[in-house]
């Protein structure tokens, strides 16, 4: 009887030690779910979700604090992906958060006074320029977040929708015209 008790206690202590060691040895830094969510988000860093960037929004979703339909740049497809990842129902965009066509910022260099306010606002360092020097957008790096538009004191930044060119043209989904018979 006593022996059995001792054996059980020893076993419990051993297993406890193994578990304790494992929790230190195989510790996961950060929240893996938040990272997965962050990978799905479009990384525009635009703050349209109300969080200061994609990572904070991902953290908020992972904690269950934020809804999955707050990211207009991700489009409906983004919501579908998040819903699939989190195992929740698809939720359409709200009235005030509708996706817009993709665009890049453009600085009218005739008007720019070189104040650097837009450079400070750009979350991905996609604006080149210096104080009292004309600024310009590095188009290939611009995520179209629009964060540079409000700080501009002379309103020289506009958002230009990305045009369809040969290099980004896509084959269309096959559709068939129905002929009217009567």
């Amino acid at each position: 009887m006593i022996t059995a008790l001792w054996i059980m206690i020893a076993l419990a202590a051993l297993l406890g030690m193994i578990l304790g060691y494992a929790s230190i040895r195989f510790r996961v830094e950060g929240n893996p779910l938040a990272e997965k969510i962050d990978a799905v988000l479009p990384q525009t860093q635009c703050g349209q979700c109300g969080y200061p960037g994609c990572k904070p929004y991902a953290d908020a979703i992972a904690k269950g604090e934020a809804d999955i339909n707050l990211c207009p740049p991700g489009g409906e497809e983004g919501i579908h992906k998040l819903a699939e990842l989190l195992g929740v129902e698809f939720k359409p965009f709200g009235e005030d958060a509708q996706p817009k066509p993709k665009a890049v910022a453009f600085i009218d260099e005739q008007i720019c006074i070189g104040c650097t306010l837009c450079i400070q606002a750009c979350p991905v360092d996609a604006i080149a320029g210096a104080a009292k020097q004309m600024h310009t957008i590095i188009t290939s790096e611009c995520t179209g977040c629009e964060l540079c538009v409000p700080p501009c004191p002379v309103d020289c930044i506009s958002m230009l929708p990305i045009e369809e060119k040969l290099t980004n043209w896509k084959w269309r989904y096959p559709v068939f015209e129905l002929r009217q018979t009567s």
Partner: peptide
């Protein structure tokens, strides 16, 4: 197939752009 291929290519491109944006941010 052409539709699916060009969609996949566009998505890959977007994914790369997003990764670059994340890195820069």
């Amino acid at each position: 197939y052409r539709y699916a291929k060009s969609e996949i290519r566009a998505r890959d491109h977007e994914k790369r752009a997003a990764d670059l944006a994340r890195e820069r941010h």
